[in-house]
Every structure is written in structure tokens, then in C-alpha cells.
Amino acid sequence: MAHLAMATGFLLILIGAWGALTNRNLLRMIVAFTIADTGVNLVIIAVGYMRGRTAPIIDGAVSAADAVTRIIDPVPQALVLTAIVIGVGVTALMLAYTYRLFEKKRSLDIRDYTDLKG
């Protein structure tokens, strides 16, 4: 199970990297980055997964005393919670910049933006 989730995550990262490297359209590149972002999150979550255990929440199913043997690792989940939110912020920023770039040159093709090339 953990391996399946992890393989999917790695695959998503690779798809995202391939998309970002081969696409010339800015919007497609943003989508590729988002896919890679999801892949990273999936891999981190998969690292915290442990077979036969349950969510790190103490309730009727898991008492505070046996939490150590019953719950999965809560730290990756807390990390991914952060990563998702930052990912949204970064995506919004990329979209805003793309919007301004398009307004400037009426083009979404990255090859039209070579102003910084010496």
C-alpha cells in the first residue's frame, strides 16, 4: 500500500517534471508544477503510512495510552498540510505573473520572453 502510493507519487513528480521541461505554454507549465507538487505530497504521506494502524486522532478507537502502537506517523501529515497551503499560494502567484506577462506581450509561449537573455 505504501509502495503503491509512493510509486504513484514519484510518477506524478516525473510527469510534472517532464511537462514543465517540454511544454512551452506557461499555463501548461503551471499545471505541470501543480502535478509535481501533488506527487511530492503523496510521497511524504506514503512515508508516514504504517500497515494496520489508524489515523493519529485519539478517540473511541484509539486511547491515549495505546496511541504509540496504534497510530501512523503524524509528522508527515503535518508537513503535507503546510505544503498544500504553500502550494496554493505559489500557484496563485504563478497565475498572477502569467496574467501580467500575457497582458504585456499577448503570448503564453515561454520562447517569447527572452528579455533577460544576454
Binding site: 504504517m50 493519529p56 504509540v68 503524524p74 501529515q77
Partner: peptide, 30 residues
């Protein structure tokens, strides 16, 4: 996959309920 919680996770699992009184350990960490 780990068979047991690592040191950090173990600390959180053992101490969250007693120290912070939060049922959701992820929330206690965050």
C-alpha cells in the same frame, strides 16, 4: 516501511493527550 514510530512521532503520540489535551495529534503538532 517503519514497524514502529520514530523518536519524534513517538514523543508526539505519547505526550500530546497528556500535555496539550488535543485529540487530533496532527493539529497539536501544527
Amino acid at each position: 516501511p517503519d514497524a514502529d514510530l520514530n523518536l519524534t512521532a513517538r514523543y508526539y503520540a505519547e505526550r500530546t493527550a497528556a500535555d496539550l489535551g488535543a485529540a487530533n495529534i496532527v493539529t497539536a503538532i501544527v
